[in-house]
């Protein structure tokens, strides 16, 4: 479903992502983990076209999408949520979702219909499925942090993606918010038969829902496999226990 071959990205002399291979099968829930600065967010930005890779290829459903602009990738079934909350803060919750739905249906250039009469049912249904129906009329920027993250997920879902990339979906959440969000993501992934690739710092979350895990360190994937295999990997243990050697490994 999603394949990454030899993907690399350098900023000046610094290799943020280095020769990464990754494959996620349809319907699979895969996680990328690693310490801060390991290159997870950069990897996501390369996949979604926000950054141009220095080398390597990205395939979605066998189609080469390397370096394709973000707005085009969205139409190829790849949705994304961001690490820093990324919504339209001064619009209402309903407008946030409606805008994404209209954009997905190619209604963007329509300058004569009334936007608030379009996609009403779909928008409400989508809000209901992410549990934001009661806040539909609220200004998005006034929502709680957890609700804003939910809304962001809703915006990503509006374009009806087959693959969803979530960058730290529970960052900054309390324990109960984290629990609810993960339950929500799991349910939606199941209902919509989504392929999911996410990064996460909360190891409990990762090992509870991921089918497969890739571990990144200093721009490289140092291990990947099912949760049990990754848990047992010696190199991973070294990185996470903090005794990783400093500087580039040879």
């Amino acid at each position: 479903m999603l394949e990454v071959h030899g993907l690399s990205k350098s900023f000046g002399g610094f290799r943020a992502v280095s020769d990464v291979d990754l494959a996620v099968a349809e319907g699979e829930i895969a996680a990328v983990i690693g310490p801060n600065g390991a290159g997870k967010s950069t990897l996501f930005s390369l996949i979604t076209g926000h950054l141009q890779p220095t080398a390597g290829r990205v395939l979605v459903n066998g189609r080469d999408v390397t370096g394709v602009a973000p707005y085009k990738i969205c139409g190829m079934g790849l949705g994304r949520s961001f690490q820093h909350t990324n919504i339209f803060p001064k619009l209402t919750v309903l407008e946030n979702v409606r805008a994404a739905l209209l954009a997905h249906r190619g209604q963007g250039p329509n300058f004569w219909s009334r936007a608030n009469q379009l996609c009403h049912g779909e928008a409400e249904a989508l809000l209901a499925s992410i549990g934001l129906a009661p806040q539909a009329r609220a200004t998005a920027g006034t929502l709680s942090y957890g609700n804003q993250k939910q809304l962001e997920l809703g915006i990503a879902l509006a374009s009806d993606p087959k693959i969803l990339l979530l960058d730290e979906p529970t960052a900054g959440m309390s324990a109960s918010e984290t629990h609810e969000t993960i339950a929500l993501i799991e349910r939606i992934a199941r209902e919509r038969r989504l392929t999911l690739l996410f990064t996460e710092h909360d190891m409990a979350v990762v090992f509870s829902i991921a089918h497969r895990i890739a571990v990144m360190h200093q721009g490289r994937v140092i291990a990947h496999g099912d949760p049990a295999a990754v848990r047992a990997d010696a190199q991973v243990r070294r990185v996470y226990l903090g005794d990783a050697p400093m500087g580039p490994r040879s």
């Binding site: 707005y71 407008e95 209209l102 997905h104 009334r114």
Partner: peptide, 24 residues
């Protein structure tokens, strides 16, 4: 008030996000 106008407001609010809902 049209969908086009709504797209413009999303660009005002957050151009990066507007691109990732599929807007050029």
């Amino acid at each position: 008030a049209s969908p086009f106008g709504l797209m413009l407001t999303t660009i005002r609010e957050n151009p990066e996000r507007a691109a990732s809902i599929g807007l050029n």
